[in-house]
Design a protein around this nucleic acid. Structure first.
Lengths: 214, 214
DNA sequence: CGGTCAAGTCTTGAATACAAGATTGAATAC
DNA sequence: GTATTCAATCTTGTATTCAAGACTTGACCG
């Protein structure tokens, strides 16, 4: 599928924000006609990854302060509500599931396996959504996350943060298991706010990838 | 624009859920070729209004329990966070804005102007988002709302509910103005839950417009 | 030397023609 | 009368061609 390939190229920053891509180019690269590419462009635009300027050009969307804030806000709101519900509903078996997630993540950290670590990060949040009784909430979190994921590819040395992220998860898990809503929300807020500093750092380091502020 | 026209047709239930539409038909109706229609279909699909079944048919999406729940959850989560922030930040001028909204809405109620009433409902929620310092949150609420808006077209006699909705808004406004977060959240929850009963009623009355449950 | 205008080229948008899969219907065999 | 099979038609997917707007580059004129 063309969409997936392009999405992967954009998410992995092989296609940099602001770089222009044209339908004929991509069509030739995939050995198809312009129509499928056009279709893919349209979908990627609605995913917020491309910006189609009619009759001018299509370019990989730059990061914008507004969109980052918006995505951040939605994720925060949803995740906090999820944590509240999870804390209210968590039973013993659920607690074990969270612990198992954490154990696996610690193992991935020990092996330095960043890919597995990232996957387990998803699994943890997905598990919390399941415990909260709102599995579909993870779809929302996931969709919002994808919009800013590529930004984090610019962050250097993710390894440093991995222990901290695990600590965050542990604290969240404890609060959820104990049924302490507000503590879980507090821990979740801290966890999310880790990203803010990273983004600010990236913004000064790679201003070219950000949209001009008005 | 073709998308808007079709969207309006779907939202207003002129095109019923489950009814099939084909690209050539719509193209002929608008006097254009299949490509613009195809483009429009693609966009409407990503808006969650159409379901394109490759090489089979394209149909107006039926309501699904899962999507309604998801949309409901996101709106609730976002709206509650907005109310919390609004309660914390509300100053005198903001309170006046809410009061003005309410006054206009009461006037619309008196005149029985349902269209204006609906618009003012949007304005109220938008105002709250503005007070909370997260205007973009309204985009999210709006987008989620559009997914289920057409469902409410099936509800009979909206007039009965208008006074109750105004009371809800008044209670929300009071709590926000007084800075009482939890009271605002509680009022917001009640406000949102009004829809649930309506949807349940519609579900039994118009089961044909809902997807089969698995 | 500089500015302006025009032609050429590059972009996406739209229209048309062709292809492939799915469904439906009728016709035929049993 | 019923079941099965084949063909016609309807669906969306893809390719190709034409069209229209915008940018670039060159030449020509002041």
């Amino acid at each position: 599928m063309i969409v997936e390939r392009l999405q992967e190229d954009i998410s992995s920053m092989r296609l940099m924000p602001g770089s222009r891509i044209s339908e004929p180019d991509i069509a030739a690269r995939f050995g198809v006609s312009r129509q499928p590419v056009r279709d893919a462009f349209s979908r990627l635009e609605s995913m917020g990854l491309l910006r189609i300027r009619p009759r001018k050009a299509t370019e990989v969307k730059r990061f914008s302060r507004g969109e980052i804030e918006k995505s951040r806000f939605v994720r925060a709101a949803v995740e906090m509500e999820v944590l509240r519900r999870a804390a209210r509903r968590c039973v013993a078996a659920d607690g074990h599931e969270l612990d198992a997630c954490l154990a696996l993540q610690r193992k991935a950290l020990a092996k330095g396996d960043q890919l597995a670590f990232a996957q387990l990060d998803y699994d943890f949040h997905r598990a919390v959504c399941g415990i909260a009784g709102v599995p579909f909430a993870f779809d929302v979190i996931h969709a919002e996350k994808k919009k800013v994921d590529r930004l984090c590819m610019l962050a250097l040395s993710r390894e440093d943060r991995m222990p901290q992220l695990i600590d965050d998860h542990a604290r969240i898990a404890e609060a959820v298991k104990a049924g302490r809503e507000e503590e879980a929300v507090e821990a979740g807020t801290v966890h999310l706010s880790r990203l803010d500093a990273t983004i600010e750092a990236i913004k000064v380091a790679s201003a070219a990838y950000f949209e001009d502020e008005d």
